[in-house]
Amino acid sequence: MAVLRVNNVTKRFGHVTALAGINLEVNQGEVYGFIGPNGAGKTTTIRILLGILQATSGSAQIFGLDAWRDAVEIHKRIAYVPGDVSLWPNLTGGEVIDFFVKLRGANHKSRRDELIERFDLDPTKKCGTYSKGNRQKVALVAAFAADADLYILDEPTSGLDPLMELVFQECVQEVKAQGKSVFLSSHILSEVEKLCDRVSIIRQGQIIESGSLKELRHLTRTRVRVETAQPLPSLKELPGIHDLEEFPSGAAFQVDGDKLGDVIGYLSQFQILALESAPPTLEELFMHHYKGAE
C-alpha cells in the first residue's frame, strides 16, 4: 500500500522550473531514499509534500489525502526534520522539543527524555548557542518522540558526528520495525545504502532512476578482475566492456549489466584462475548518473 504518492508534479518559480514532472511512490513499512546533488529539487519536493509549497501541476498525496488541501490532517500523522534547522534563539532546546510535541497534540514525556539522553543533548541551553548538529538533534528528538506513521527527513544527519549518526540509524530501524514508513533525503550514500529499501535519484528537477538498490545495480556496470591460465586475447572488441586494463596474467574492466553473462562465458574458455566481481557502490551509481548527462 502506498503511503506517499507523487504523480507528475511540476513546480515553477517564475520562469525557473524546479521540478519537471516527478513521480514517487513510497509503500508502507518502507525506508525510501531520495538522493541527488545540491539544487536538484529535493527540498522543493519535500516542501510540496508538506503543503508548504503548492505544486504548479500534478498531484502529491500522503495517506491518500491531498498534500496541499489536507495538510493539517496529514501532519497529525507525520514527523518532519528539516535540512537546515533554524530555531528560536531565546528558547531552550527542551522548550522547543516540548512545544513541537504539543503541537502534534501528543504527549510522550518518557520517549522524549530517553531520546534526549540517547542523542546526548543538553535541553537547558538556549537554541542560539547550539551548533548545527545540536539544532538537528532538537529536530530529531522532536520527530522521533512523535508517534508518526510517516517520517519525512531532509538530510537529517548532515551536522551529526559519526556516533550520533549511528543513534539516528538505530532510530530509523526501530520505526521501520514498527511498520512505519520513512522518506529520507540524504547526501550520505553509505547511510542510504544501509537503511533504504528503495531509492530515487533526482537531477535537475527530474527523477532519473528509481527502484531497489538491486534493480539499480543491474542498470549499471559490474567491476570484474580476472586471471586466466591461458593468455587472453584482447578484450577490446567485446561488446559491453569499458575501462579495460590488461596485464600479462589477466585483465580488469567494467562490464554492462546485461552483457555480464556473455563476457563470463567467453572468459571461461581461457581457464579462469581467479575472478573478482564487485557490484557498483551507490557512489559509483551516483557518479554514473550525475556525470551521464553533463
Partner: peptide
C-alpha cells in the same frame, strides 16, 4: 515550517 509541518 516547524509549525506548518505539524498539525497547525
Amino acid at each position: 515550517e516547524h509549525l506548518l509541518a505539524r498539525a497547525v
